[in-house]
Amino acid sequence: MERKVSLAEIKTIAKLSKLSFSEQELANFSEDVNSVISHFEKLNRLDLQGVSPTSHISWGQPPLNPDEAVVWENRDWVLEQAPEVCGRLIVVPKIVEK
């Protein structure tokens, strides 16, 4: 059965992502997201009873880092990429409202 994503859900996701869109854009998203979802709906045709969800496609023990510091030399370059800096702080619009 196909599940439709409502406009309200699209609006919630946009809000969670702190993004704003025009009504037209939201309507377009609704359409796009629904076509993506209906594509994946095809997977529901498979009988997956007894198969556990796959979150990772590789197995075995992953590598671990030793607890020894390595300095990244390009740290100043990052500041050059920021739209605005103040000293070494990256400047962003204030989002805390009291």
Partner: peptide, 13 residues
């Protein structure tokens, strides 16, 4: 803090 533009915050990672 020092010289932060009005209405802005600074991020330290």
């Amino acid at each position: 803090g020092l010289n932060l533009p009005f209405g802005c915050s600074g991020v330290d990672f």
